[in-house]
């Protein structure tokens, strides 16, 4: 994500403003979201309509205050509102795992959580792993061990692997395999993905 484009109006932000067409949506420009005082949501804002709320999200250590529709899933809000498109939507029914993110230290399907339930939770997405230009060991291990083939499931696989390593820094192969069992890989590259998780454990 390029966070420095907040000054102008990007194509994404422009479409968002035009498309959403509500008072709430108009304040969701990158400039406001990324500003240090983002918590100061304008108090003169119109009362959110039925089925909408303003929620405070903490994603990758950054605080966002944003109006969401109650029917929006966390995956949709991450991608469509916050521009964090590293989280993929595959099946959108809690089966494939492409949308996996870490919520309060546990990996979950972001397609199966409503964004409105996320107030006060710490959310970690694949964008939050690298420290500046330095990749997280698990990202590096996925590169070194050819974890991605087509790549669509990769961010989900990485987040499930990361969640495992957060709780269990030196897992057995069976534990790694089980930890990735909620993430489908259509390329069938499971052995390399498990290998990458085990290599990341050793790299720490």
């Amino acid at each position: 994500m390029d966070d420095k484009k907040g000054k102008g109006v990007s194509r994404r932000d422009f479409l968002k403003r035009v498309g959403a067409g509500s008072v709430g949506a108009a304040v969701i420009s990158k400039g406001l979201l990324d500003a240090p005082g983002a918590d100061a949501y304008p108090t003169e804002a119109v009362e959110p309509a039925k089925g909408r709320s303003i929620v405070s999200l903490k994603v990758n250590g950054k605080a966002y205050r944003i109006e969401v529709q109650h029917r929006q899933t966390l995956a949709e809000v991450l991608r469509d509102e916050l521009g964090l498109t590293g989280t993929r939507i595959g099946c959108d029914r809690g089966e494939c795992g492409a949308c996996t993110v870490i919520i309060d230290g546990r990996n979950m399907y972001s397609c199966s959580q409503l964004a409105v339930w996320m107030s006060g939770k710490e959310i970690l997405t694949v964008e939050g792993l690298a420290k500046g230009d330095k990749l997280d060991p698990i990202q590096q291990a996925f590169i070194d061990h050819d974890g991605p083939q087509c790549g669509f499931c990769t961010s989900g696989q990485i987040m499930s692997g990361k969640a495992l390593l957060l709780r269990n820094p030196s897992p057995s192969e069976a534990q790694a395999r089980r930890a990735l069992s909620g993430n489908l890989c259509r390329c069938g590259n499971y052995n390399r993905e498990v290998e990458a998780v085990l290599a990341a454990a050793k790299a720490r």
Partner: peptide, 9 residues
């Protein structure tokens, strides 16, 4: 039951 992600939620 289900998958790790679902058991966590």
């Amino acid at each position: 039951a289900a998958s790790p992600q679902i058991r966590n939620a």
